[in-house]
């Protein structure tokens, strides 16, 4: 489908999230994210990659207002999510958006049974009928590949992969339209990762979910996402269709990142040429400021006007 015809379910503009730490003289500001702009189409999977500490989790948390963004705008289905928090806005956010957390062990309350954990979102939404709650929980357990019998057990009785399934069930039981999955497989053994990735893919098909998939493993993100955003030090530097990004990376950081991903192929690995990204050398932003620019249709790069011109020239044969 051509991008123009698709509905933008999430629109993020110049989002910034700064944390202040320390007091008095020691006070300093961490610009965890700074000038992040992108949009997500309905029913697509949008991957967010970047190195540890570049601001992926912060972005996810700011989107669903677990943090109060310093500046910028986030619109879900046209409605602005930044600004003063009201009961109505909180309700709007929780009923439309959900988050699967990075650590499957820390994020489940050890004193609650699986039934209590999974049904929590429904109870908050005012569903009290025990029979209905049971039915919905069992249906969810079945969906994520667990059984009814698991409902009365506690988190510590499950393996990492099973706990991650419980986390997924808890998030999707309220049928959110957008799910932010923060490194849902990073903590799992390789053999279990594939189970969880396949499950997310099935749920996406079945429920028409829109997913923001955060990870640092580029191969997994590429496999799972329709489009990908690349972050570097609090900024989003490139957004494109996943095939396009991988075949024609434009921003020098994306090129460096792709050149560093080890591939399970001894023939190509031995010939690998790794590119190095040094921001000071790669860009001269003393005269022109960079901003997110659509360099090719659907392919956005954080660049200055003269860089944009140079990129277009470099890929001239593609126009």
């Amino acid at each position: 489908m051509a991008n123009e015809e698709r509905k933008k379910i999430l629109e993020v503009e110049h989002l910034a999230m700064h944390f202040s730490t320390g007091r008095g003289k020691k006070k300093s500001v961490v610009k965890a994210i700074n000038d992040v702009s992108f949009h997500v189409y309905e029913s697509e999977t949008f991957g967010l990659v970047g190195e540890s500490g570049c601001g992926k989790t912060t972005t996810g948390r700011a989107l669903i207002r677990l943090y109060n963004p310093t500046s910028g705008s986030v619109k879900f289905d046209g409605r602005e999510l930044t600004g003063p928090m009201t009961n109505d806005l909180r309700k709007y956010i929780t009923s439309n958006m959900g988050m699967i957390f990075q650590d499957p062990i820390d994020s489940l309350n050890p004193r609650f049974t699986i039934r209590e954990i999974i049904s929590e979102g429904l109870k908050i939404r005012g569903i009290k009928d025990e029979k209905e709650l049971d039915d919905r929980v069992y249906e969810m357990l079945d969906k994520v590949g667990l059984t009814k019998e698991h409902a009365t057990r506690y988190p510590h009785e499950f393996s990492g992969g099973q706990r991650q399934r419980i986390g997924i069930a808890r998030t999707i039981i309220t049928r959110p339209r957008l799910v932010i999955a923060d490194e849902p497989v990073s903590a799992l053994d390789v053999s279990i990762q594939a189970q969880v990735i396949n499950l997310l893919n099935e749920l996406k098909e079945e429920m028409g979910l829109t997913i923001i998939f955060i990870a640092h493993d580029l191969s997994v993100v590429k496999y799972f996402s329709d489009r990908i955003g690349v972050m570097y030090y609090g900024k989003l530097v490139e957004v494109a269709d996943s095939e396009e990004l991988y075949k024609h990376p434009i921003h020098p950081y994306t090129r460096a990142l792709l050149s560093a991903v080890p591939q399970p192929n001894p023939l190509t690995e031995r010939k690998r040429v790794r590119l190095v990204y040094e921001p000071e050398k790669a860009h001269d932003y003393s005269k022109e400021q960079p901003q997110m620019t659509e360099v090719f249709p659907g392919h956005f790069v954080y660049a200055s006007p003269s860089e944009v011109e140079a990129y277009r020239k470099e890929f001239a044969d593609r126009l």
């Binding site: 393996s159 594939a194 189970q195 590429k222």
Partner: peptide
């Protein structure tokens, strides 16, 4: 076989990943 096929590489596209069923 299972180990080599369970993770996607940058070329893996629409196919389903071969998950190893069960637990160790």
């Amino acid at each position: 076989w299972a180990l080599l096929s369970s993770m996607p590489d940058l070329e893996t596209k629409d196919e389903k990943l071969m998950a190893i069923p069960g637990t160790p």
